[in-house]
Simulated scan of single mutants.
Amino acid sequence: MILRSALNFEAKLGRILVSLLAFLVFFGMAEPGATQTLGVPVSPILTINSDRLFSESMFGERVRLEIEAEESILRAENRQMEAQLVEEEKQLTSKRKDMTPEDFRAVANAFDMRVEEIRKFQEKKASEISQLRESQEISFVSAARPVLEALMRETSASVILEQRTILMSTSMVDITDEAISRLNVAIGDGTQLLDGQP
Rank of each mutant, 00 (worst) to 15 (best):
R133E: 11
A110Q: 11
L53Y: 01
K90Q: 13
E116P: 01
A144G: 03
S72P: 11
G33W: 01
V141P: 00
N109W: 06
S55P: 06
Q122P: 02
E68H: 14
E149A: 06
N78Y: 13
N49G: 04
R62P: 08
P41T: 09
E77Y: 05
S57Y: 03
L85E: 04
E82Q: 10
Q84W: 00
L132M: 07
L85N: 02
D98L: 08
A108H: 09
V42I: 14
E128L: 09
R105H: 15
T100E: 08
G33E: 04
V107L: 13
E66L: 04
S135Q: 12
G33Y: 00
F104E: 06
P146R: 05
P32E: 06
Q80H: 08
R145I: 02
A34K: 12
Q131V: 00
L85R: 05
R105I: 09
R75C: 08
S50Q: 01
M81V: 08
A83W: 02
I118Q: 07
A108C: 02
S50H: 05
P146S: 11
V141L: 11
L53I: 01
Q131I: 00
S72E: 14
S130I: 02
L65Q: 15
T47C: 04
E123N: 14
G33P: 03
E123T: 07
D98C: 03
F104M: 02
V141I: 11
V40S: 12
